[in-house]
């Protein structure tokens, strides 16, 4: 007889004495024997029929009184209600609150954004623009942190909110630069209204409005179609040197160390964005200082 048959017979309990003798002491017999000795320990706990029956009768009476089912399950309907609430509030938030679209540029990076009404925004380095996508139809409003050039499609009011003021237009081209303690708006086409904490100013093409450290300037510029930075050049007219250096750091992703230089002196000029040596010359020559280009992205400017 084969093992398989032996096991089958063992299961059925049809082993003859002869079979038993034949397999006595074999591995098969020992393991099966051990198993059948061990299994009773897994017997289900004693079920007290009378006890359980009276428990059932109680449950049935209380159910008949209440007219509904089992007390222990109250959590379930409650959870259902809670789930519906959560779902509704999520839907509510989703429908009413408008998600803001945020576009950010890193240092030494520029990007172009087409707004839902096909207005065009070019973001300069290290800047952020946020606008609501869904509510755009009702209100054209963007929030700007940094510098951007706007070509606004004709239509209703268009607002650019910055920490220093609001720029309001109808359809036009203008540049907004909002850096630390520095706020500058230049209008290139149409009419722009700038509303800062101090005043409300209307700008015609090629007029500039600027606040540096609380000091307001309005200036007429020579004719330009768009800001020079769009063409890869930052230009300044009578701007404190420190803001020029900050812009230089943003465009080249370097840090500038200043030694013995008056950073409040006014600078008029420009530097290009794709040649650091040339740019450094452009900055240092007019104000008569030395520059040194170090490794690990450092530049030292020192007075003579």
């Amino acid at each position: 007889m084969k093992d398989e048959d032996y096991i089958k017979k063992w299961l059925e309990g049809t082993l003859t004495e002869e079979d038993e003798r034949a397999f006595k002491g074999s591995e098969q017999q020992k393991s099966l024997d051990r198993l059948s000795r061990a299994l009773p320990a897994f017997k289900a706990p004693e079920y007290d029929v009378a006890d359980e029956l009276s428990r059932l009768e109680q449950a049935r009476t209380s159910k008949a009184e209440e007219g509904r089912i089992v007390p222990m399950k109250w959590m379930k309907p409650l959870l259902r209600v809670a789930a519906v609430f959560v779902l509704l509030s999520v839907v509510y938030v989703f429908l009413t609150r408008d998600a803001l679209t945020t576009v950010e540029t890193l240092v030494a990076e520029k990007t172009e954004i087409v707004l839902p009404d096909s207005s065009l925004v070019t973001l300069n380095a290290h800047s952020r623009l946020m606008y609501p996508t869904k509510k755009w139809k009702d209100k054209r409003k963007v929030t700007l942190d940094g510098e951007g050039f706007f070509k606004v499609a004709k239509g209703s009011r268009f607002d650019v909110e910055t920490s220093s003021g609001v720029v309001r237009v109808l359809g036009t081209e203008f540049n907004v630069k909002n850096r630390e303690n520095y706020f500058e708006v230049i209008c290139y086409e149409g009419l722009v209204q700038v509303q800062s904490a101090q005043q409300v100013v209307k700008l015609n093409p090629n007029q500039m409005f600027r606040i540096i450290n609380g000091e307001v300037t309005t200036e007429a510029l020579s004719l330009q179609v768009s800001p020079s930075w769009l063409a890869g050049e930052s230009s300044f007219s009578s701007v404190p040197l420190k803001y020029v250096i900050q812009e230089f750091e943003r465009q080249y992703d370097v840090s500038v160390i200043i030694k013995n230089v008056d950073i409040d002196q006014r600078f008029t000029g420009a530097f290009i964005h794709n040649d650091i040596t040339l740019a450094l010359k452009a900055i240092s020559l007019p104000v008569n200082i030395d520059y040194q280009l170090e490794e690990n992205k450092q530049v030292i400017l020192s007075g003579k």
Binding site: A44, Y47, V49, E52
Partner: peptide, 9 residues
Amino acid sequence: FKRHAKDLH
């Protein structure tokens, strides 16, 4: 109940 409860359990 008496007949089936134990088996079911």
